[in-house]
């Protein structure tokens, strides 16, 4: 029964046009970014940086490097927006449309209903990240040669050079870790969605939470407390691009994100359980 309900939940989710907004925007944004890199001098500073380090720039200004450069802003801004949109919709949109009332005249428990919806949200997050990775690599490959991976992330003190095969494996690993960011923001929006509010409000509240956490994390005086901030742990995917992967730090962030998600889910379930569902 659970699998049947889960399948139906995916059916509902992917039957809606708005579910595909994120996929379409990634498709457009990554195509445009790749074209700008191709037809402007945007890659010159990178070329100079590599040459100053004694590297052959042509070897590293590749499809992998461009795809990874595109990944940073997409993961920081677009991905949170689209997963929050879907997470905020999962319960609140059904309540707004009245279909939640139709479901809850059935003998299904509220907890089970939420679990099914949450898992559907996780599947969406996974597919959106996969699309981000595949679209990025496809469009950059259309305009750039295959080659090594150059990553420069000053905030994480990462300056790395990888051969093509290691670069590709790091690119894939980065996306796997990015799923945790997408799923966590989705979970946050899902929590708000369980309250008696409009879907847009759930999305906005989730994004506000992320932005406030981001702002606080970047106040220099709060540097000693950055481990407390949600967004600090969302960036764990970037660590995969370090020459030597700091696994301890990745596991620390993963376990903290698991804790955040468990808390969000518990609050959401509790709020939904005590709520009166009315037209």
């Amino acid at each position: 029964m659970f699998l049947l309900q889960f399948r139906n939940e995916l059916w509902k989710l992917f039957g809606k046009k708005r579910t595909y907004i994120g996929f379409v925007m990634f498709l457009l944004a990554q195509n445009v970014i790749a074209l700008v890199f191709k037809y402007t001098h945007a890659s010159r500073p990178m070329q100079r940086m590599l040459e100053a380090g004694g590297q052959v720039a042509e070897h590293y200004i590749s499809a992998l490097t461009i795809a990874t450069i595109m990944l940073v802003p997409s993961a920081a801004f677009l991905l949170p927006l689209y997963v929050a949109l879907i997470g905020g919709d999962l319960v609140a949109k059904e309540a707004e449309d009245g279909t939640l009332r139709m479901i809850l005249c059935r003998p299904v428990s509220r907890v089970r209903l939420l679990m099914v919806k949450f898992l559907a949200g996780v599947v969406f997050s996974l597919l959106l990240v996969a699309a981000l990775g595949v679209f990025g690599l496809t469009f950059s490959r259309m305009h750039f040669q295959w080659g090594g991976l150059f990553v420069w992330m000053p905030e994480q003190s990462i300056f790395s050079l990888f051969d093509p095969s290691t670069g590709l494996s790091r690119y894939v690993a980065g996306h796997l870790m990015l799923v945790s960011e997408a799923a966590s923001i989705m979970c946050l929006a899902f929590m708000f969605s369980c309250f008696n509010i409009k879907p847009a409000a759930a999305t906005i509240l989730a994004l506000s939470f992320v932005f406030v956490s981001f702002i606080m994390e970047h106040i220099p005086y709060f540097k000693d407390y950055q481990n407390w901030f949600f967004t600090h742990h969302l960036n764990l995917w970037q660590l995969v691009f370090a020459e030597t992967i700091p696994w301890w730090r990745i596991f620390q962030s993963l376990s903290l994100l698991a804790g955040f998600n468990a808390t969000f889910l518990t609050i959401g379930v509790a709020a939904f359980q005590v709520r009166d569902i009315k037209s």
């Binding site: 509902k12 039957g15 809606k16 009245g98 279909t99 009332r101 139709m102 005249c105």
Partner: peptide, 17 residues
């Protein structure tokens, strides 16, 4: 609720399905 059916004043459905 195993053997209960219900209809509401404005029945809502997944219109896109």
């Amino acid at each position: 609720l195993e053997r209960v059916g219900a209809i509401f004043e404005t029945p809502a459905f997944y219109d896109y399905l």
